[in-house]
Design a protein around this nucleic acid. Structure first.
Lengths: 220, 220
DNA sequence: CGCAGTTGTATACGACGTATACAACGCTGA
DNA sequence: TCAGCGTTGTATACGTCGTATACAACTGCG
């Protein structure tokens, strides 16, 4: 190589190591903070060095999404309801760890891990739950939409929504008292969250159970 | 002004006109295709001219999201179920027209139209449906998550999914016959879609009704 | 040893958001 | 009528981005 690197090589460059580093970088800085240059810098290399291993940035994102799909675990048995429930919980957990993946999981071209994920979910609804194909498609859509949508909102909201509610409540209504009159039900919710807190896990599963109940009724 | 413009001014520059043009541009080219320069070009102006009216690009996006929220109509009466149903249908219709808005609607700072949207939804669940505050929050989350998630998936999928299924079916399994064995339930779904078609409207409302049934049961 | 393939670097291009400085206009008051 | 000022658009420039291209250093094989 021509010149000495300023920072020593920190890890071997390979598709695998690059993808893992990219996931970590996106976890920390968000998807907008993920640039080829910053990613390469972490290896003590130049941006162009990455292109020997990943094609282009889209390919990089595909690989990253793949890794996230790989983290999702679907139990083999326990009945359709337990399986589908765990599947959704696991998916949301992955999206909570990797918020940047929300909006990418569905948009990228399907990988093996992706296809497997969908296939096992559908298999469960068809065989374990015994739903006819039309109902299985509907149920599948319903569940995945809920999971994605919940993750999407969770990503946008503060981690500790109750603390945020407490902090903002008075600042907002103090700045413009007419807000309390214009949007009383919104204020009521903010107050409720400030008082009782908000547990994303619990709320997610609560909605999930409503949906599972609905699917249960489809079976009869 | 110093030099003559190459293209004549096509419309007056104002926050209002810029936001509308931006929405149209994003509708056509996607949110990635929306740049200050291209947007300004549509007015026969330079990118910097926009900054007299919109602060920065984030402010621009805020305003665009605002316009979309303004398109959502919530009926005043008809019972909680009809109101909430129409609310969801209208929201999804807006997101279908403006796919770029998915993932932005929740992330931007709340505007007036945004606050009103949430307030009226919560008001309906509290007064019309008569849900206690905790159930109202849960029901509200459930519905919005579903709508956002459905819109998110719809954005990623082809408009005519049945045609796509027909076109891709044989190309895929022809290229790699083992796919059919690895993912039989996925193939089954593709075949079903190719045969029977897929109506996003109908499927959306089908899932929506399952959720509304679930909320109905919460009331008792 | 020589030589080919692999891997990283150097450099450059065009597009992006936007800071800064300036020029052309419309309005006002004398 | 005209000076002055605030408003609006332009010109230019900076740093960042993804990535094309050309080249240099290393590896392993004959």
């Amino acid at each position: 190589m021509t010149g000495r690197r300023q920072g020593p090589r920190k890890a071997v460059l390979s598709r695998e190591s690059i993808l893992r580093a990219a996931v970590r970088l996106a976890d920390d800085d968000g998807v907008d903070g993920l640039s080829m240059r910053k990613l390469a810098e972490g290896f003590g290399a130049t941006a162009m060095a990455l292109y020997r291993h990943v094609g282009n940035k889209d390919d990089l994102l595909d690989g990253m999404v793949d890794l996230v799909f790989g983290e999702i675990e679907i139990p083999r048995d326990g009945g359709w309801r337990a399986i589908m429930r765990q599947r959704a919980v696991s998916m949301r957990a992955a999206l909570r760890c990797h918020p940047w993946a929300v909006g990418l999981m569905e948009a990228r071209q399907p990988s093996m891990a992706n296809l497997r994920y969908h296939n096992t979910g559908l298999a469960c609804l068809r065989t374990e739950a015994g739903l006819p194909i039309g109902d299985a498609i509907a149920a599948y859509n319903l569940m995945d939409s809920y999971v994605y949508g919940f993750a999407l909102q969770e990503k946008a909201l503060p981690r500790d929504i109750a603390a945020e509610a407490r902090a903002r409540r008075d600042a907002l209504t103090g700045a413009d008292p007419s807000l309390a009159e214009q949007f009383p039900y919104l204020i009521e919710v903010v107050d409720e969250l400030a008082a009782s807190g908000y547990d994303y896990n619990e709320q997610f599963e609560r909605g999930l159970d409503v949906i599972l109940d609905g699917i249960e009724r489809l079976r009869q």
